[in-house]
Amino acid sequence: MNIKIQNMTKTLNHTDILSDINLDMTGGQVYGLHGINGCGKTMLMRAVAGLIHPTKGQILVNGRILQGQNSFPENMGLLLENPAFLNQYTGFVNLKLLAQIRNRIGTDEIRESLKRVGLDPDDTRQYRKYSLGMKQRLGIACAIMEHPDLILLDEPFISLDETGVQMTRTIIKEEKDRGALILLSSHDYELLTSSADQIFHLTAGKVTKHFQKLQDGTFKEASL
């Protein structure tokens, strides 16, 4: 898996939401997007997910330009800010319904991914009765259940307790070791440093800083 973002600018309503973004990302690495609220982290996530089209520049996934009808990267797992599931069904049924669309995995894999995020696959509670943390865990399970090559996690630590944060870190590491390319965003720099190999700092839609993890686990500013 390889993602190249080349001179990408996104303008909405005459405002540059993202400006001249250049990034190069490869599989088996965790990339973090850091910045204050409204700096463009989610927009960049959506652009990589193929949900929004660049105004200028392009995004290449494995050499293929994301555009038009086929704007989505193949084999992608996605957690956006507000995970939306069907209120009337349990977590397991929700994941099963989504998994049935591609029919790549069976119930065993769904159960396994629920267990990985600390949810009980046999829990009979409807999604509407889930706490915020449980909803977030289900969102993470949904993103990883089909063993995607690209995992986009927008603010994955939000609403999670200490155990949940630790669990998410473990999952990110496991998925990285499997060879997936993981892009995660957070406004909390400390949380990002615990999981990411490289961190891009965004300010007003621009990548202003780039930090790289060293052997000793500390981060050093690198060139853009």
Partner: peptide, 15 residues
Amino acid sequence: SGGGVQILSRIHNRT
């Protein structure tokens, strides 16, 4: 702007 995004990311086809 909700659950449909999960579907789109799985079918890769807006049409």
